[in-house]
Each structure stands twice: as structure tokens, then as C-alpha cells.
Amino acid sequence: MIDGNKGQERGRGRPRRGEGHDRAALLAVALACFAENGFKNTSLRMIAATAGVDVALISYHYGSKLGLWTDVVTSVADDSLERLTSFLRDCAGLDDRERLSRIAARIVEMISERPQFAQLMVGEMIAADDTTRSDILETRLVAPMLGVLLPALRSIHRDGEEPVLDEVLMVVASFAMAGLVVSTRPFLTRLTPVARADGGWQDAVSALLARILKA
């Protein structure tokens, strides 16, 4: 394709002149597509069509489907880790019971803000069909989260009481449980009234999460 302004051929994969790159909007669309269809069944063309952009724009900025998926995960991971670290620092002076309650509530709140990411995570953990994506999830999200959560939970058990469950299993299982419950809320409204009440819903999931984290 010839750019009349410069008289030169546009490089393959480069966006056309005037095409903007709204990263946040594109990542939101990509997250929705990956969550609904899974990594294998999602294509860059599908994401581009949903976002209303040229597929070449995505290829230019992210290189590949894995590159875009990685940026989706990294964006959520960085934001979540920053917010959780700040929150844990702010509630460090509370008594054990209140701190545990607030930690559980904040985790549920953060998961509820991005139910599609919870759906993506549950799908990836169940499939576990690609070591590259699993490595990315571990190094960019799970390991850093464990790094800030485990010391906070250990301080709650500082009286010498040993956790009943393995600490890593406890945290990963609690996140997986909360993510599964949050992402399946539309179905759960058929089974229990608490799923239909916004305030009561998060309180109920938070209370359940706190019990697991205390174990």
C-alpha cells in the first residue's frame, strides 16, 4: 500500500496513518474474548473485529496472540499487586480477626471487578495445556501474589498456631474458589438468593474466603 504523503510503501503489519492505539480498550476486548473462548479458540482477527480495529494494528504492537495475551495478564497482575500491597500496608495495625476479614473482602472485591479475568484464570488452570502461558501466569501473577500474601497470613498466625493447610495450597485454592464463584454468579442466582443481592453477595463470598485463609 502506498502512502501518498510520503510516496513509500507502508511496512507490513504497521498501522495505517491516523489509526490510534487505545491500549486499555483493546486489552479489555482481548480479555473478554480470551475469557469467553479460551486462548486456542480466540484469534487476533476475532479480537480486532470486536474492537473495531485493523488486525495489523494488533500485530504491530503485540507481535502475536501470545504477546497480546501476555500483556492482558501483565496489566491485571501489575495493577492487582500494587493495590494489594498498598492495602496490606494500610491494614497492618489491625487485630488479626479484622485484618483477615478485610484481606478476604479486598480479594473478593478485586476479583469481582474483573470477573472475566477470573474466568480466564479458571480456564487456564483447568486446561494447563501450554507451559509458556503457565510460566507467565506463575511468574507475573501467582508468585508475586504469594510473595505479599503469605507474610501477611503468617503474621495472623504469629501466636504459634500452625495452619491446618499447606500455605500455598490454601492461598491458591482460595483464589481459585473465589474466582470460580464470582465468574459463575449468573448461574448461582438460580440456586441461592444471596447471589442476587449485591452487598450480601460479596459479604458471603468474603466470609467463605476468610474461613479458608484461616485454616
Score class of each variant (00 low, 15 high):
Asp90Ser: 10
Ile126Ser: 06
Ile107Leu: 10
Leu120Pro: 03
Arg89Leu: 12
Phe117Ala: 07
Ala105Asp: 09
Asp90Arg: 08
Asp95Tyr: 06
Arg102Thr: 04
Ala92Phe: 05
Gly123Arg: 00
Gly93His: 06
Ile126Thr: 10
Ala104Tyr: 00
Glu124Thr: 09
Leu94Thr: 04
Ile107Thr: 07
Asp96Glu: 14
Leu94Phe: 08
Met110Trp: 02
Thr131Asp: 15
Asp90Met: 07
Glu113Ile: 01
Leu120Val: 02
Arg97Leu: 13
Ser112Ala: 13
Asp130Phe: 00
Ser101Leu: 08
Phe87Asn: 03
Phe87Gln: 05
Glu98Leu: 09
Pro115Leu: 00
Ile126Gly: 00
Met110Cys: 07
Ala128Cys: 11
Cys91Met: 14
Phe87Ile: 05
Asp129Thr: 03
Leu88Gly: 04
Asp129Glu: 10
Glu98Ile: 07
Ala92Arg: 12
Arg97Val: 14
Cys91Pro: 06
Met110Tyr: 04
Glu98Asn: 09
Val108Asn: 04
Ile126Ala: 12
Ala92Thr: 06
Leu120Cys: 06
Glu109Phe: 09
Asp90Ala: 12
Ala92Gly: 03
Thr132Leu: 12
Glu98Thr: 13
Glu109Ala: 11
Gly123Trp: 00
Arg89Trp: 04
Ser101Ile: 01
Thr131Lys: 11
Asp129Asn: 12
Ser112Cys: 07
Val122Asn: 07
Arg106Asn: 11
Met110Arg: 11
Glu109Pro: 01
Asp96Gln: 13
Thr132Val: 14
Ala104Phe: 02
Ile107Tyr: 00
Gly93Asn: 10
Arg89Gln: 15
Asp95Ile: 05
Ile111Met: 11
Cys91Val: 15
Leu120Glu: 08
Arg102Tyr: 04
Ile111Cys: 11
Met121Phe: 15
Ala105Arg: 08
Ala118Asn: 03
Val108Gly: 02
Ala105Pro: 03
Pro115Trp: 01
Met121Asp: 08
Met121Ala: 12
Glu109His: 13
Cys91Ala: 12
Leu120Tyr: 11
Gly93Met: 05
Ala92Trp: 01
Glu98Cys: 07
Arg99Glu: 02
Gln119His: 08
Phe87Asp: 04
Cys91Ile: 15
Met125Val: 11
Val108Lys: 01
Thr131Ile: 12
Asp129Ser: 09
Gly123His: 00
Ala92Leu: 05
Met110Asp: 12
Cys91Gly: 05
Glu124Ala: 11
Cys91Asn: 09
Glu98Val: 10
Ala127Thr: 09
Arg89Ser: 15
Ile126Phe: 08
Asp96Val: 14
Arg102Ala: 10
Cys91Thr: 15
Ala127Arg: 13
Leu94Gln: 12
Ile111Leu: 11
Gly123Asn: 00
Ala118Tyr: 04
Glu109Tyr: 08
Met121Pro: 05
Asp90Tyr: 02
Glu124Val: 13
Gln116His: 12
Phe117Ile: 04
Ala92Met: 06
Ile103Ser: 04
Phe87His: 09
Ala105Met: 03
Leu120Phe: 14
Glu109Gly: 13
Ser101His: 10
Gly93Glu: 10
